[in-house]
Amino acid sequence: MSVLVVLEAGHRMAGEALTAGRQFAAALGVPLTAATIPADLTYTADGFTAAYEAHARATNPALVVFAHTYQTRDWAPKLATRFRKVLISDVIAARVDSGSPVFVRQLFQGKLNSDVRATGDGPHFVSVQAGAFPPVEAEAPETISLTPAVEPRQNPEKPFRESTRAVDLTAAPVIVSVGRGIKDEGNIPVVQKLADALGAELAASRPICDAGWLPMERQVGSSGQTVTPKLYLAVGISGAIQHLVGMKGSKTIVAINQDPNAPIFEVADYGIVGDLFEVVPALVEAVQRAKS
């Protein structure tokens, strides 16, 4: 019995998965092993699932740990299903209680937490959330090769980037970012005025760009840009993890939201709970007064 950490070749979160694996192994009192499929082998969901299934059947780990990356989301649930298990995904903490592991994961985009117990015999499968565990340098893991007998049904082409970004949010010292709370495309000028008053770049959470209210290149979050300005104002953004990972390194964070329980207040230094359509115009005036 062991804890097996699956390291995604070349991914920045590999070291975070390793830290989580070490903690889980120590708590369970079992040794840690780590494995990777080298980056020069082409990723497919079918190919990776078959290779790790063979490895897991041969080594019979108590727990298999992944970083919750896009690639993990593409194949790890298949692997777990082959062992008739759920991938307990996106966990932020863990403990061992009465001999079995209990994982903490968020519900409702971070509004609530849940304790999830992995019951029955292993292997159990778990992926850890970005930023939940501090990264360590990965030691040389065991290298796993693909199973030659398995022909993947997916035929992937070379990854590509759509176009060079016209807007580089990473260079902006001040960012005003807008979320669903803005309600309608016609209300965008409300936050644009605040950005103008502060000399800030205007950015947005994913749903605003999905709706086409602002271009995709102004998106902050896991599928957009990662920013660390000296001042980040989140206006009408509830703070789903996909957004938080893109901005929580900002020096000073201000949140304006109607919901006092919105997860954005967890990462904020300053906050105003209220209607953004009243607060933002008042803030524009206050900023103009302070700057004059």
Binding site: L112, N113, P263
Partner: peptide
């Protein structure tokens, strides 16, 4: 289930 929710709570 092998992934049993034991508790739901405010963070």
């Amino acid at each position: 289930s092998t992934a049993v929710i034991e508790k739901v709570y405010a963070p």
